[in-house]
Nucleic acid binder design. Structure first.
Lengths: 335, 335
DNA sequence: CTGAAAGCGCTTACAG
DNA sequence: CTGAAAGCGCTTACAG
């Protein structure tokens, strides 16, 4: 019932291998033979079986992208960048959402290995080192996206979180805020660490005393921003500004402030890493550190391709610059 | 170099087929044999090759989900529902973003057929009928998600767009708005049509004359909402409220209103289909028709599975009810 | 409960 | 420029 390469070969009066040559555009085929083969393919509605192809050739032309949060616009933008670049090279991308869960990540990796993907782009979770070593042992090529992993020597494409956080904090200080709180992501994740470091660096440079109560470690989630803001504002000495580790946290912060009838930025300023999608349409308009998410995905695929082709053997780290998008917040979120 | 089923068989002192039985948990294997096989698998770090498995068994335990916009939270939520349900059944989901582009959709379908997916969940674009007929001819199982396609008899899982739009318009009318504009999605897409129909139905029932200038057809994108709002407000007779076809359009509407220094809801009310992610944290807070996106993905997979198992042969249409989430908007987006 | 043989649909060397 | 043979790593009947 299924149309195979042999059916096409028979119809075109050639051998299967010649059909294969036409499909894959390798080897020599005469113009006339090629025409006949193409005609047969189209007449029979032939669809090559990639399982058979991959089984023999040991290449599937498929790569995977593991993102840690599919609902986060940063990651969907990374995915678009990766997909566009991959498509241009004739590769398919399998998009997998690990939800920051190392076990889910490990399950996905196993599934992907069974599927014989050629390589993997990984936005690692807080506990990926063991999985990555396993990949290394198996000789599977991968590139880390957005986050470095301690103790793992591998290609990384990420943005300069520390510099971004440093600039943002500097901006807040220059604007006149002295008491700045930081609600960030897990310190087990490099972006969580680097953003905290940038914040601390800027305060230190200005000789501002670090208030430990102003530093909160959470998850990269709105619920975390919400809970930690409530915690933060229970303190006697309230901060004048809150800098958040990503836009999801910022969303939770805004919600908490709203419930506490605190106005942004009149009562307290808020700024974040990553833009809140559609935020330009609403007020207040948060100043944000903008990451080149699309580029990160794109460069990630480029790196992986070069590695797959053997064009590159040394480990590389791409650290892309970020942009501070300063907005004079003008709204009030008071009830 | 690669560890195959024969290596495991040799190590365990059994035949390959016995190893296969252990892995797939079918056929009879004695306790002791199974133990030895599992030991060998673990010792050799054996990873089964799904290409070979699928080639012979003609089943890949893989399904695909085509979404039309990966940056739209509605679709990522559908994807999560689909993924969770699929995982529970031991299926993998390939997530593909068609970007509302019929050609991209067609390319993806071809790639997926080559990959021998067992079935496809499709959020169809404005021009999918031909691709769907092709799938039908090839005997490929699929389920339509979110949108029906005219002239195509296939399983559909969608929410009740018309009822939702009807209720929303009724609510606006009951609140006192008489001049209500509608900025929706393409009429070539069923959700675009149904939402317009619901709006018109509510106006008609109240005996309100339809103002053609108040009805705008666009894309399900912010840029569309933005441009059409500007167009809409050029009219002499300005509407008192704008009802949008989805949250992305609403975002563009808000941006345009902001630029025109119009206050929401004091100068003009805005409401939409789908919630804007994180909107609760900002003002104004839009009243919205909430769709059971997660359920849609989940039920889509269930339907597909029943069809794949041959448990179901008749075409079914699931129309899920929606919820009107009424918020008393309290903010002002004036500059 | 276990296994030998055949074959899924391709591509890889190797010939010519 | 074209093809016959072998094999990728599994599973499917069929035996026993």
């Amino acid at each position: 019932m299924t149309v195979t390469i042999h059916d096409v070969a028979k119809q075109a009066g050639v051998s299967a291998i010649t059909v294969s040559r036409v499909i894959n555009q390798n080897g020599y085929v005469s113009r006339e033979t090629e025409r006949r083969v193409r005609e047969a393919i189209s007449e029979l509605n032939y669809i090559p079986n990639n399982l058979a192809k991959g089984l023999k050739s040991r290449k599937t032309s498929t790569i995977a992208l593991l993102v840690t949060d599919i609902t986060n616009a940063f990651w969907t933008t990374v995915a678009r960048g990766a997909e566009d670049e991959a498509e241009a090279s004739g590769l398919s991308v399998l998009l997998c959402n690990t939800d920051e869960d190392p076990q889910k990540e490990n399950r996905y990796i196993t599934t992907l290995l069974k599927q014989q993907v050629d390589g993997i782009l990984i936005g690692p979770t807080a506990d990926s080192a063991a999985h990555l070593e396993r990949l290394h042992e198996l000789g599977v090529q991968y590139v880390l996206i957005d986050r470095a992993v301690e103790g793992i020597q591998a290609d990384v494409v990420r943005s300069d979180s520390q510099a971004g956080a440093y600039q943002m904090t500097q901006h807040l200080l220059a604007t006149g805020y002295q008491k700045i709180a930081f609600i960030g992501g897990p310190l087990a994740i490099s972006t969580g660490r680097d953003r905290l470091l940038g914040y601390q660096q800027a305060l230190k440079e200005k000789g501002i005393e670090m208030n430990p109560a102003y530093i909160k470690e959470g998850l990269f989630k709105a619920s975390s921003g919400y809970a930690l803001t409530k915690e933060l504002l229970c303190e006697n000495d309230r901060p004048q500004a809150i800098f958040t580790g990503n836009h999801l946290i910022a969303t939770g912060v805004m919600q908490a402030l709203h419930e506490m009838s605190l106005c942004v930025p009149d009562d307290i300023a808020v700024c974040s890493f990553d833009d809140i999608p559609g935020v330009n349409s609403f007020s207040p308009f948060l100043t944000a550190v903008i990451q080149p998410a699309y580029e990160i995905g794109k460069i990630g695929v480029q790196l992986l391709l070069k590695r797959l082709s053997g064009e590159r053997t040394e480990v590389e780290e791409f650290v892309l610059p970020v942009n501070l998008l300063i907005r004079s917040s003008c709204g009030c979120n008071r009830k």
